[in-house]
Design a binder for these strands. Sequence first.
DNA 1: TATAACATGTAAGCAGTTACATGATTGG
DNA 2: CCAATCATGTAACTGCTTACATGTTATA
Lengths: 182, 182
Amino acid sequence: MSLKHALLGFLNYESLTGYQLKQFFDESIRNFWNASLSQIYPTLNQMKEEGLLTMEVKYQDSSPNAKIYHITDQGRAELQRWLAEPIEPQPYRSAFLIKIFFGANIDKEQIIIQLKQRLQLAEQELENRRQISEKLFQKFSTENGLNRKALFWSLTVDFGIKNEETTVAWCKEAIQRLEALQ
Amino acid sequence: MSLKHALLGFLNYESLTGYQLKQFFDESIRNFWNASLSQIYPTLNQMKEEGLLTMEVKYQDSSPNAKIYHITDQGRAELQRWLAEPIEPQPYRSAFLIKIFFGANIDKEQIIIQLKQRLQLAEQELENRRQISEKLFQKFSTENGLNRKALFWSLTVDFGIKNEETTVAWCKEAIQRLEALQ
DNA sequence: TATAACATGTAAGCAGTTACATGATTGG
DNA sequence: CCAATCATGTAACTGCTTACATGTTATA
């Protein structure tokens, strides 16, 4: 389960609560792995049972009690193992491509409308990720380029940018090909 | 559920058994939506209950009895409705990008190995999809280009090709950037 | 003689979503 | 006074995967 390893990844940098982990997800890896609090909390509990984490209750005056999770040696070992393990290819699924595939069943104008929506979405996402990329460089640039951590982060952002660019290009071409259809 | 609509899409062209539908999946949309027989059979049953399909048993001498499914008017209406309905963006998930994101936790060589594996996979897929594309053109080209159905099919194949190309380019760049790291 | 192709399913489990539940503190 | 932020969960449901179950016919 990748969620577990993502949690281990963050907790290997610093000890955090479930709530904080959710914030880290939202600020960094949301674009390629999102998780809800209602999934994070039970997963952390389970990981504690498995010996990957330990938990410490922090009593707070000005806010509710919080459970801080710490990674264990076993957890660190599991993270390393997973990172080095060869990838198992994930099946790709796209409901949108099913629509395109069966597009001959409806008016081409209706498909064009959907392609234009998809294009707009991709353009927004592209702009969004370009901004993330720029912030990353502003924050973590050193005289020899990005620092080690930020280099890896920027690779994932670059992947997103390249993919959105591809989607934009494909949508535009698809719209043209359909408009050329008599 | 997209699976239902994919099944409706195929059954709108011709009546088929669950087994045949699986073959259609494997031959056409597998690259962006796969389904197992153990998911297809119960889904067809459910769709029959919902009035989207009717079922007819075909007794065969030379092979087991088969259940042929026919789309109903209600099924056709549902397919049209779904095709015209605006898309709800699907969350993208990539365990591989999580590994890259946390790549600073292990030796860069280990990440490079994984990137090279990913690159090889993408190159294979790219070759594969280019062949599919060529076959499509050989089979369905007319004097004004592809016929209507095949045009939509080719759009989905093109999407795959463009994406694999992007992945190939990104992997190569990522490997270079990591190798340049001292 | 075995295995691939034809043909249909059930049952258990997993990962993730959505809805529901509780309650304090801070800022507009 | 209301909404947002902080903080933790449970329960039901959905879609999909994996393992199991059954049986015939054609082909190598």
